[in-house]
Simulated scan of single mutants.
Amino acid sequence: MTWHFTEDPAVFRAAAGALLSAEPARNTGLLARVDTAGRLGWWTGPDGRVTGVLAVAAPGEPTFGTVTPEAARALASSPDLPGNGRPVVVRGETAAVEAFAEATGRPWTPTVRMRLFRLGTLTPPDPAPAGRARVATAADTPLAAAWAREFVRDIGEEPGKDRTGPVTERISGGRLLLWEGADGRPVSMACFSPVTEGQSRVHLVYTPPAARGRGYAAGVTAAASRAARDAGAARVLLFTDLANPTSNALYRRLGYRPVTDHLTAEVTGR
């Protein structure tokens, strides 16, 4: 029973491909990082099967895919512990993150609790909100980048970073949708990720405060979900903040069903 590590995505996929294919939804956060992570790891059990995977995008920031608590605890006592004694920010399914954090023997703090949802039968809002959805164009980039900064601030992260680059990439790929109100002005947005392993994730759902409470987020989320399926996604996923009961209820009404709970935790340095 041991952890193995590589910096080569091809080596990682060859070793862990069966697990990634068997549990693509539960591994969605890791799959988004495979080609950009500085380090990739997989855990083999006593029978040689891979039962855990992780990606380290930056030193001290591991993202767990499917990881058993046993594997998480083993990582905490491994000389390959991400961070090498420095503070660690770990993300993944709640049970694995808690097992890892407790096994380090260091103080730790849960910072964000999320729930992963998978779309079943899409149920658009009825009645539909006023207006319509449309695909964003290059002319929408300044507005979408500003909204992306506001979104990041709303979820408690640092808003100062310029979001123009990521927004431009989504717009150029036709993956950022806007909802226009009855007067034709954009009032909400949502994105969907490129299709990977047959799945896409809806994200960056944002409505400015002055436009909230009118169903625009439901309209644009339904439109983005439909667009993801039209792009070839057999599975459409999204994460919600468990501290936001409004969004959790909204996504359930649209046809999303819970898969598993996720946790981000900060573990102090030695």
Results as ranks from 00 to 15, higher is better:
residue 2 T to E: 10
residue 4 H to F: 13
residue 7 E to R: 14
residue 7 E to L: 02
residue 8 D to Y: 08
residue 12 F to I: 01
residue 15 A to R: 13
residue 15 A to S: 14
residue 15 A to F: 10
residue 19 L to P: 00
residue 19 L to W: 05
residue 20 L to M: 09
residue 24 P to E: 12
residue 26 R to I: 03
residue 28 T to H: 13
residue 28 T to Y: 07
residue 30 L to E: 01
residue 33 R to N: 12
residue 34 V to S: 03
residue 37 A to K: 02
residue 38 G to D: 04
residue 40 L to H: 03
residue 41 G to F: 12
residue 42 W to A: 06
residue 44 T to F: 09
residue 46 P to R: 14
residue 49 R to Q: 13
residue 55 A to E: 02
residue 57 A to H: 10
residue 61 E to T: 13
residue 62 P to A: 04
residue 63 T to A: 09
residue 64 F to Y: 06
residue 65 G to P: 01
residue 68 T to Q: 09
residue 68 T to L: 08
residue 72 A to N: 07
residue 72 A to F: 09
residue 75 L to N: 01
residue 78 S to L: 11
residue 81 L to W: 11
residue 82 P to W: 00
residue 87 P to N: 03
residue 88 V to M: 14
residue 89 V to Q: 12
residue 90 V to C: 05
residue 91 R to A: 09
residue 93 E to M: 15
residue 93 E to N: 07
residue 94 T to W: 03
residue 99 A to D: 06
residue 101 A to W: 07
residue 101 A to I: 04
residue 111 T to I: 14
residue 111 T to S: 12
residue 112 V to G: 00
residue 115 R to T: 09
residue 115 R to S: 08
residue 118 R to N: 02
residue 120 G to S: 13
residue 121 T to K: 14
residue 123 T to V: 13
residue 126 D to L: 10
residue 129 P to F: 00
residue 130 A to F: 06
residue 131 G to E: 08
residue 133 A to P: 08
residue 133 A to G: 15
residue 135 V to F: 02
residue 139 A to M: 09
residue 141 T to H: 07
residue 145 A to D: 03
residue 146 A to D: 15
residue 149 R to N: 06
residue 153 R to A: 15
residue 155 I to T: 06
residue 157 E to Q: 15
residue 159 P to T: 00
residue 160 G to S: 15
residue 161 K to Q: 14
residue 161 K to Y: 10
residue 164 T to I: 04
residue 166 P to F: 12
residue 167 V to T: 14
residue 167 V to S: 11
residue 168 T to W: 01
residue 169 E to F: 06
residue 169 E to L: 13
residue 170 R to W: 13
residue 172 S to K: 14
residue 176 L to W: 11
residue 176 L to E: 02
residue 177 L to H: 09
residue 178 L to A: 04
residue 179 W to Y: 07
residue 179 W to G: 04
residue 179 W to F: 04
residue 180 E to I: 11
residue 180 E to Y: 12
residue 182 A to R: 12
residue 183 D to W: 04
residue 184 G to W: 06
residue 184 G to S: 02
residue 185 R to T: 11
residue 186 P to L: 07
residue 190 A to Q: 03
residue 193 S to I: 03
residue 194 P to W: 03
residue 195 V to M: 07
residue 195 V to H: 10
residue 197 E to C: 09
residue 198 G to E: 04
residue 198 G to T: 01
residue 199 Q to W: 03
residue 200 S to R: 12
residue 202 V to F: 09
residue 205 V to C: 10
residue 205 V to T: 07
residue 210 A to V: 12
residue 211 A to S: 13
residue 217 A to V: 04
residue 217 A to W: 07
residue 217 A to Q: 05
residue 218 A to I: 06
residue 221 T to A: 14
residue 222 A to R: 00
residue 224 A to Q: 07
residue 229 R to S: 03
residue 229 R to E: 01
residue 230 D to M: 10
residue 232 G to M: 08
residue 234 A to E: 14
residue 235 R to P: 00
residue 237 L to T: 07
residue 238 L to S: 06
residue 239 F to E: 04
residue 243 A to L: 10
residue 244 N to C: 08
residue 244 N to M: 04
residue 244 N to V: 11
residue 248 N to W: 00
residue 249 A to Y: 05
residue 254 L to W: 01
residue 256 Y to R: 05
residue 257 R to Q: 14
residue 258 P to C: 01
residue 259 V to P: 07
residue 260 T to V: 15
residue 261 D to E: 14
residue 261 D to C: 05
residue 263 L to P: 05
residue 263 L to R: 11
residue 265 A to E: 05
residue 267 V to N: 00
residue 269 G to F: 11
